[in-house]
Design a protein around this nucleic acid. Structure first.
Lengths: 322, 322
DNA sequence: TTGTACGCGTTATCAT
DNA sequence: ATGATAACGCGTACAA
């Protein structure tokens, strides 16, 4: 690939002059400009971004770290982020932690090696103090998306509130016992459980951790077998929700008359499922926009500033499943 | 971020010695090694990959260009590629063309600016001679995934054959008229239509281009209203298939007794749909593996070699929908 | 307006 | 075994 120096030789000018022309400086003889541009075009000159990044201050690279890109929600998020970043001339280095903290650490090292200007991250365990300590030492601007981490820029939907909202809805619709599919430290479960406890239904709520379909099936069967009335099930994400719907179907349990299901993320497929999935919708595009804006702002003005905590409203999209 | 030169100063050795230690050269005094490593660890040294890339011959960066990362199939593909590349120490710069050829061109420029070692691409219109010309001028190793482009390394499933397979299946199951959801230049349609024509059913097959749900609904309604017996519908991808299933449900048409549906990509959600979606499965992991292997091979041995044309077998996963 | 000189952080080559 | 030194391609300061 041709370089400025080579163009300089070919056109008989100095390399800095080529640089000036290519960067649109006005103080250049029109004739030289012409020659240089023609040569650059002919050889399809492309700036060496590594050289620029090495000597200059910006690489125009952003790291994006997600837990699972094959999850439609994160795929969508990544897409929006990419679109948004592109508007400012940024490119994306994508990483997938696969919910493995070791991968996460490695990636954060890689990202720094490439001297990315900043990172947008969906951390695995954002609440751990360890994570916050680690991030702060990184001295790379970093914004959490979809997750709240105290002391760090965070743009997210309030999972606690979302969980509470789901609990309200299920209780209101007459469900009598409640199940959350996911880990007990999930903030959604916190809000879900708390709200149900306030209603005196704490004893009737539990959670099941998803491992695989067979285990989910078994756990659901056991839980449903015990008496207790209509079951309101809140799934930690739409994928779990879809699997729960499937399990219920194979158990011969009618939805929503015998059991209701509410998902999380409002993945696009939700509206095509049978029954159509009720789900908590997150404003993906808005989160991406805000997060990129904040990150670019941090990059542009590196002064110390208090962390941004921007909780956004999730909304419950009620369809057929609950 | 600390550099080799700084470590050199702190430990009182020369910068090349630091380089040797950090790169694991054996010809280093154990005592110096110790000091250097300790210092590097203390300051959390991270190699400057830009400097290395600038000077050396490898950036350890791969470009990945897909048409739509929010499509579960491509998201999955990207994930597999990333996992595979990581095994060889490569990181991924992700691009989304969004089916816009202009984006595609821009991205290929960006990719070259960052001096990626190679590119894995799902081109928008791989058949156009323009594309092939362009790629050849790029002088960046490039492998097509999921698409066949003559004269370029291509790893893909044979869409013509896949379409034929679907036609066979639908005809065998007693469907009497046939619809393809997608563009008429889609190779799947080519194989689908050809096979049906061979069976004397050419007059009973048509295609509908998906634009939006309302239009799909209308088109389906019109097509189904005309007489002709059981309808076998082949959707260009699982997303379309899901929408078709939904449309059929709202039209009150029973699946698969009145109409059958077969998707494409065998997205993970397929097995949870109601009815479970029959779909053509592509060996994603295998494609990712082969493609990355081929690309790394090209990178490692840049000599001219004839292009690789590797068609893989798609398989029909028969579930409930057809 | 244009050119010379230098530095960014690394690897590689050559002495020592 | 270790240290000078050059080179990669760019932007920038300074000189002309």
């Amino acid at each position: 690939m041709i370089t400025m120096t080579e163009i300089a030789k070919l056109t008989g000018v100095s390399q800095p002059t080529v640089s000036r022309v290519l960067n649109g400086s006005q103080n250049v003889d029109p004739e030289l400009r012409e020659r240089v541009l023609a040569c650059a075009k002919e050889h399809d000159y492309q700036l060496n971004a590594l050289a620029k990044g090495l000597q200059g201050r910006r690489t125009k690279l952003l790291g994006v770290l997600v837990t699972d890109i094959s999850n439609g929600f994160f795929a969508d998020l990544a897409k929006q982020i990419e679109m948004e970043a592109r508007k400012s001339g940024y490119s994306i280095i994508l990483f997938n932690s696969d919910y493995n903290p070791q991968n996460e650490r490695e990636y954060l090292d890689v990202v720094r090696r490439y001297r990315v200007d900043g990172v947008l991250a969906v951390p695995i365990r954002e609440t751990s103090g360890e994570w916050q300590e680690y991030v702060k030492k990184l001295d790379v601007p970093m914004v959490m998306v979809t997750r709240q981490a105290r002391g760090l820029d965070s743009i997210y939907v309030d999972h606690v509130q979302a969980g509470a909202m789901v609990a309200e809805h299920l209780a209101e619709r007459g469900f009598q016992r409640f199940l959350f599919i996911g880990r007990d430290y999930d903030r959604k479960y916190t809000g879900f459980r708390r709200t149900l406890e306030e209603k005196g239904l704490g004893g009737r709520t539990a959670n099941v951790v998803y491992q695989d379909d067979a285990q989910l099936n078994q756990a659901l069967r056991d839980w449903l077998r015990s008496p207790g009335g209509r079951a309101g099930i809140f799934a930690g994400n739409d994928i779990y929700a879809m699997r729960v719907l499937d399990a219920l179907r194979s158990l011969g349990i009618a939805v929503p008359s015998e059991a209701g299901v509410i998902g999380f993320d409002d993945t696009s497929m939700g509206r095509y499922l049978n029954p159509r999935l009720s789900s908590v919708s997150q404003p993906i595009a808005r989160m991406a926009r805000e997060a990129v804006a904040r990150l670019l702002d941090r990059i542009g003005r590196p002064e110390e500033r208090p962390p941004l905590d921007l909780p956004l409203q999730a909304s419950l999209v009620v369809r057929e499943s609950a």
